[in-house]
Design a protein around this nucleic acid. Structure first.
Lengths: 217, 217
DNA sequence: AGATAGATAGCACGATCGTTCGTTCTAAGT
DNA sequence: ACTTAGAACGAACGATCGTGCTATCTATCT
């Protein structure tokens, strides 16, 4: 049988019309994810409950749930949002510094300020997420692992450039130094969260500078 | 009125007779706590559920519950048990080494082996617990923080002795070096758990030895 | 040997979990 | 202006959560 005589061009499928999401919906979705990232640093990605999250932003469970369709999708979107925030607050400030050692120092400093300004109530989102999701195979762990790998790669790139520019001793191994700096960042977050005190940040700044050879600076 | 003529010595209070726990009960309690410590490294101390735990060791929820009386008490006992295991597997082997730098190296090595032999399926119990409970005030956080403080103090003592014995440069700051080593341990656990591979342990061993000045040893 | 309290199980509770459904409202596309 | 689909809601589901109560069994003590 011939198709109905409609003015729709044949290139466009008449069935399955996906309309763009509405502006108010996207605004709500953003607010949900920002609250979800904060809550997850306290309760964990698994302990993040849809009821609590809905109450925190003052909407109904079902209304919130409709934005994601499953808890897994909510978790994935939350990790994505946390990645955006981390990129804005830590990675971009570092990239704005001159290539090499300056970027390495800027990255650490941006991370410490990220903690100090208490963007999240539970410290660094990914420090907690790596430890929590490490033993839970699935898409969420994969997303967290991908971010962590990217962050380590970023540090390693800075280290390599710094060595090439003679700002770090040529006997330094980028992989090893990256591992050390990653540990410093982890230890700083753990201590900051556990003692709820910014005192550790000064210690961490000192350790980073000493380790990178800026003793008196 | 005179007390009843019983053969019990007067030093013992006749009321509130607390009898010793039974042998089978203590054995069960130990089995519960060992399973709880393992489960907690995967699901977290908060995500540790009494139903799952009871099913894991093949007993009823209420039977298990009677051993503790509340989830909080179960969590506290679990932290205590994890502390005993950590002490057996990591602290004691280190203390058996000659005082100073050797103890420091033995401590790191014992920790790496603690991970490698997979005592817990989720890596180091306290690495996860610190990050999870850091934002959750209460007795459990306090217990975890106390253990962490004790562990840091142990490292610092080793470092101080090593400096006094001339095995580490005198310009080393014990607090700073302790912070670095703590970070190394944290990073090792995180990577080990996330990648489920012992490859990182060799990297960590290398980094520790380099950092402590044993380049070619 | 008899008494007693600890050890364990069964059952049920109120609350909360993630999830689904049906409905109402409204922003956006024709 | 009319239509349509996204946004949000209330209500309810089955499951599981931590927590009690009661009953039965048995190790241990006199």
């Amino acid at each position: 049988m011939p198709e109905t005589t409609k003015s729709t061009p044949p290139a466009q499928r008449p069935e399955r019309a996906p309309r763009r999401p509405r502006a108010d919906g996207e605004r709500t979705r953003g607010a949900i994810l920002r609250a979800a990232a904060s809550l997850a640093t306290v309760d964990g990605l698994e302990g993040l409950s849809i009821g609590h999250l809905a109450a925190a932003i003052g909407m109904s469970k079902s209304g919130l749930y409709a934005h994601f369709g499953s808890k897994l999708e909510l978790q994935l979107a939350t990790v994505e949002e946390a990645g955006r925030i981390f990129d804005d607050e830590v990675v971009q400030p570092a990239l704005a510094a001159p290539a090499g050692l300056a970027q390495l120092l800027a990255l650490c400093e941006a991370f410490f300020e990220h903690l100090q300004r208490r963007t999240f109530p539970g410290g660094c989102f990914f420090s907690g997420a790596v430890l929590e999701m490490g033993t839970r195979p699935g898409p969420v762990k994969e997303a967290v692992a991908a971010f962590q790998a990217g962050f380590a790669g970023l540090i390693r790139g800075f280290v390599t450039t710094a060595i090439e520019q003679g700002e770090l001793p040529s006997h330094e191994d980028p992989v090893q130094l990256t591992f050390e700096l990653n540990g410093l960042i982890l230890a700083t977050d753990a201590s900051f969260v556990l003692n709820d005190s910014p005192a550790v940040l000064d210690l961490a700044r000192m350790v980073v500078r000493n380790r990178l050879g800026l003793k008196g600076q």
